[in-house]
Amino acid sequence: MNKINIIIFIVSILLTLIFSYFTSYIWMGIIPGIIIGFIKRRSTRLISGFLIGFLFSLLLYLAYPLNYLASLDKVIGNLAGLPGIILLIIYPLLYGLIELSSAGFIGEVLTLTRERKSIK
């Protein structure tokens, strides 16, 4: 793995943690996604985009007292008519998808730009 990719991973992980904990807008996940978009290999870009978004926003639940969080999740799940686990996973999943899609989008744009430059 090259140095740039490692830096990209670290920066995007940090931004994911900061944005998903402190902000109220899920689309802030686009920013780490854009950074991940600079990874050249498409598969690495997409997998890491999804995993960083999903895993590190999921990790943030550890900021709360887990036993009480689990009890609260069960109650709210019951209220929403959904299994509690869905409530906890759905947001990280969407976060992962946002990072994946923004990384993918940027990656494809960069690929097209590079192709056009090489044609010229």
């Binding site: 902000t23 709210i76 947001y91 969407l94």
Partner: peptide
């Protein structure tokens, strides 16, 4: 994501 934001790990 905005619909499900209340269930996010955010401190909000």
């Amino acid at each position: 994501g905005q619909i499900f934001f209340v269930f996010s790990p955010s401190k909000q």
